[in-house]
């Protein structure tokens, strides 16, 4: 069981999950725990010879009931591949799986915030290469969604709605647009190739989305992921995080409530600033909390648009 300690100096929680120190680390292909279980072979995490999408409790959880949740989402039973390379129908199914987990975990009293994410690449600490993501159910409201709520207050309404309006008006950083979804490098991107994928209409979470919007979200996310891979002609590492409405804590309204806050969007934080160079979080980023970027969002948006076009 993890231990929470509150850092009174920074005003934030720190999670101690010391059992994770011994978690499976980059096993060889023959010992991938996310592969299906081959008849006669050693049992993996998924004791079936084939599957479409599997979700299970993390063997090395950062959170577990009654103090949150940590789940693994395996996108396919194929060991090789990536989110961007999934068949379009599978990516769309994944949106429904995310929706299911947001609904179920969000209904739990011990979970205040559901965060769906994918770490891709050893550069961001991936320990298993099989295409998969994770879900954390936090027993508290973490600093980032708390800051997004504060932005709503500062801007006098839904911050992602307002920021989307500004990006559409400016146009310089737009990457992809469809009827339901817009992708852009944000005006104040912290990472060189940071991208936000935002629902056009105010949808607090996946629960409020129409089926067509889920399809559009999957298509845009995959187009971006393939564009990333085309950018430097290599598998492109990133952290992909789904931002949705908190499910508990002060001010959280139930799904369907007109007062419900939050705006579904997906943020990508890629650590590469060139094909070979990583952006490190160093003195200013760690000591002051202020990112210093070597690139301009308007310029990275140009090359990302070209990469997305090449990958299409």
């Amino acid at each position: 069981m993890s231990e929470l300690r509150f850092d009174d100096l920074r005003g934030e929680e720190v999670v101690y999950a010391i059992h994770r120190q011994d978690r499976t680390f980059l096993p060889d292909r023959e010992h991938c725990p996310l592969d299906p279980t081959v008849p006669g072979g050693a049992e993996t995490e998924i004791p079936f010879p084939s599957f479409e999408i599997a979700v299970f409790d993390n063997r090395f959880p950062a959170f577990e009931a009654p103090g949150g949740a940590a789940e693994v989402v395996v996108y396919t039973d194929r060991h090789d591949g990536s989110f961007g390379g999934l068949a379009p129908g599978r990516a769309e199914d994944l949106m429904w799986v995310w929706r299911n987990r947001y609904a179920e975990l969000g209904a739990r009293e011990d979970i205040a915030y559901v965060m769906i994410f994918e770490n891709r690449g050893v550069e961001v600490g991936v320990t298993l290469h099989h295409p998969h993501g994770q879900i954390y159910g936090y027993p508290f409201l973490p600093p980032v969604p708390a800051a997004e709520w504060a932005s709503d207050e500062r801007l006098g309404g839904c911050a992602p709605c307002e920021l989307l309006r500004r990006e559409l008006t400016d146009g310089a950083r737009l990457l992809l647009q469809s009827e339901d979804v817009v992708a852009y490098v944000p005006h104040a991107a912290r990472w060189a190739y940071e991208v936000h994928v935002v629902m056009r209409r105010h949808r607090p979470s996946l629960l409020e989305c129409e089926p067509g919007e889920l399809r559009g979200l999957a298509q845009t996310l995959q187009s971006l992921a393939r564009g990333y891979d085309a950018l430097f002609e290599r598998p492109f590492p990133y952290v992909m995080v789904v931002h949705q409405a908190p499910t508990a804590d002060a001010g959280a309204d139930p799904p369907g409530s007109p007062r419900r806050r939050g705006h579904l969007h997906v943020e990508f934080y890629p650590p590469l600033r060139t094909a070979e160079k990583l952006k490190f979080l160093a003195g200013s980023e760690q000591g002051a909390g202020t990112f210093i970027s070597d690139t301009l969002p308007e310029e990275t948006a140009v090359v990302l648009r070209e990469a997305i076009a090449r990958a299409a």
Partner: peptide, 23 residues
């Protein structure tokens, strides 16, 4: 490993539902 920039994953195998009866 992850797929290369223009490499697409071939059609999913094992797309049937779980075939084994649980314990």
């Amino acid at each position: 490993m992850t797929s290369g920039p223009h490499e697409r994953t071939p059609p999913e195998r094992g797309d049937g539902a779980a075939e084994r009866t649980p314990e």
